[in-house]
Amino acid sequence: MEHWLVPPLKVAIEAGTPLLLASLGELYTERSGVLNLGIEGMMLMGALSGFIVALITGNPWLGLLSAMIVGGLMGALHAFVCISLHANQVISGLALSMLGVGLSGFIGKRFVGIPLKATFGVSPIPLLNKIPILGSILFEHNVIVYISYILAIILWLILHRTKMGIMIKAVGENPAAADAAGVDVYKVRYVCTIFGGVMAGAAGAYLSLAHIPMWVENMTAGRGWIAVAIVVFATWDPLRALLGSYLFGGVEALQYWLQPWGIDPSLLGTLPYIATILVLVIIGSSKRLRRAMSAPSALCKPYIREEKVV
């Protein structure tokens, strides 16, 4: 018999993975100075396209790939509007969210109620899953969960240990200075925004190909917004995003464990947002923390390159 801790923690990871994927992408986007509020819509479009392609080809990997492409394309659209056209990032992001919700609902109508055979099933990692307790919590999931572990670590390393990471952070903090230092601000922002879209698409595909293998309208149910909150909660750090995702995923999943004790689920549902606000308050209250952990200074500010006088 498994330890009593195993099922709830396992579920927390399962429910946290789409949040993790989406928030890792959003984190990079915001680090480069672009706010993307279109995550919800990108996740939905990813979920739908992943589902359709997996249904037609019978291959979940192709589904995942197409979800990433669709997410990336939407990210590219956001990038074009915000970076090249200097449009308001909030408005563009909200528009993309609404577009994604509406369009996926419209296109997806014909795909509702079709069972999907090609899914990412549970594939335990041999040996590792024999570790007592931790083994079954961490290593009895589908492949995307394992990929997300590795991605979180790699993305942390890139951000904090490589030149590329410094470039991204510089662009998000002070694009003019980065530009002067020879960094192509537009290129970095484009890449990060498209990457954010790709990750959101993958998060959507996780929902429709692994978590609940089917297409249902609006199946993300607000996860895109929680992902945006997680980025703030994690103070723009990939490993803290990992923690935040499992925490928020766990809060959501565990309400049914706690229900018999009379704990109100709608109250639990507000916890991620309350936690995020608390983090903001804590950061705001200390100068030292503010310097180390606050939002990228150039977030939401379009960068318009000054003309060089030759």
Binding site: P7, P8, V11, A15, L207, H211, I212, M214, V216, M219, A221, E252, A253, L254, Q255, Y256, W257, Q259, P265, S266
Partner: peptide, 22 residues
């Protein structure tokens, strides 16, 4: 019994079912 407080929410339904199975 577990309540999900929604008529239509696949993810909540899954989580509630998992909790019951556990």
């Amino acid at each position: 019994v577990r309540w999900i407080f929604a008529w239509y929410d696949p993810v909540k339904a899954k989580e509630a079912a998992e909790a019951l199975i556990a």
